[in-house]
Nucleic acid binder design. Structure first.
Lengths: 218, 218
DNA sequence: CGTCTATGTAATCAGCGATTACTTTTTTGT
DNA sequence: ACAAAAAAGTAATCGCTGATTACATAGACG
């Protein structure tokens, strides 16, 4: 006890400094882990704080409430979905417009099935607050704009019936894709269509839908 | 205090007998009221018990847990949806098969928009336990069977492309209808398609979808 | 160096789902 | 008719939750 440095904390491990360093990110990561382990309905602020090594009240310094925390998770998830979609479109850049639309739908559905918990969060409107997010609304608008562009192109080159109102085609397409993803993730699909594994039925349904969009042989 | 009847309870009002009479039903009704007032995520067993005039523990004599209570609500809601759909089909009994399918879809969507809270409950797979319900699974199967019947009829009379696989058409149709209903109820539709009131967009999207199902002019 | 601010904690509140032990009523068998 | 059993209620309690308040500490910055 003579020449030892007069540190107040002689313990070996760094022993959790008073300030975490990056608590917000740690909380988001912990929340994602909870969701993946136990489902989105079991998320609790206190558990996230526990995992991040903070007190139960600490999260409230960074997130006004539980909704804000989950909205931060949703923001991150939405970025990933948007990236997945944009990457798939870029890979299909040389194809016909309705092929690219199908690629978009395929990427959307694949991402949803691969990341069901993230999909549930960005889809929820009771757990998150879309209005207070800076990413979710714009990302959805961007995806919609891509769809509109492809459909307009398809109308010009004759691969889409020119009488169709594009706004409603976009809505119909989104309703189909969203409904299919939710059915698959929430378990409705397995109940409704038990004859086939979900992973097989989803792309088949998408292909069928796209085939209806194209002009029939005449 | 002499000739009065020796009743133990001389109070004027019946004063809440020890046994409620029909607590299960009262709890289901109270739960529905809570859902409609404050949303499905604010349902609590204790609040339902309070409204039914029972102690916080009383509900557990009739429902094993919160899920069981909400499943009872869902059972009742599913009956109503099934009735709405069957009534609409009966009213269209004289029409062509794809017209009847559209009538089914229209009734489904109208019921969903008119009863958003009930729709949310029967659609949820985290709040209720479909496997332990005696109504939900069969009702869904019945609706699916109606759709299959109409589509088979449509294939025979030439109003549906005979190459289409009916199982996948049914799945696609259900995904579209379910997705559209959820988008409308959860608020996605207003975000995605802001140019038009939800109540206008839904039937238009349905009509558009049905038009794709019919053979094109050739 | 000293102060201000950001970030953390402890203590507390009301509400929740669920369980246990106990009480009261109704049903039922003889 | 009546006692025993079953059904239906209650009170008290547990551990958990979201959120708030008052206080403590660390870091940033003049």
């Amino acid at each position: 006890m003579t020449l030892h440095s007069p540190k107040k904390r002689p313990s070996q491990k760094p022993a959790a400094p008073y300030h975490h360093g990056n608590l917000p990110e740690a909380l988001v990561a912990a929340t994602i882990a909870i969701i993946e382990e136990r489902g989105v309905e079991h998320v609790s602020i206190r558990e996230a704080a526990r995992r991040a090594g903070a007190s139960p009240a600490a999260p409230f310094r960074h997130f006004a409430n539980k909704t804000a925390l989950l909205t931060a998770v949703a923001d991150q998830a939405m970025d990933r979905l948007k990236n997945a979609v944009e990457w798939a479109i870029a890979a299909a850049a040389h194809e016909a417009p309705l092929q690219r639309l199908e690629a978009l739908g395929s990427a959307y559905l694949r991402w949803a099935l691969d990341n069901p918990t993230h999909f549930q969060i960005i889809s929820s409107r009771s757990l998150i607050d879309v209005a207070s997010s800076e990413r979710i609304g714009p990302a959805n608008s961007a995806i919609r704009a891509l769809m509109v562009g492809m459909l307009e192109e398809g109308r010009e080159d004759g691969s889409l019936d020119p009488d169709l109102d594009i706004d409603h085609v976009v809505l119909m397409t989104r309703a189909f894709g969203y409904g299919l993803a939710r059915m698959a993730i929430d378990g409705h699909l397995a109940e409704w269509h038990p004859s086939e594994p979900v992973a097989d039925a989803v792309p088949k349904a998408l292909a069928l839908f796209m085939s209806l969009l194209r002009p029939k042989a005449r």
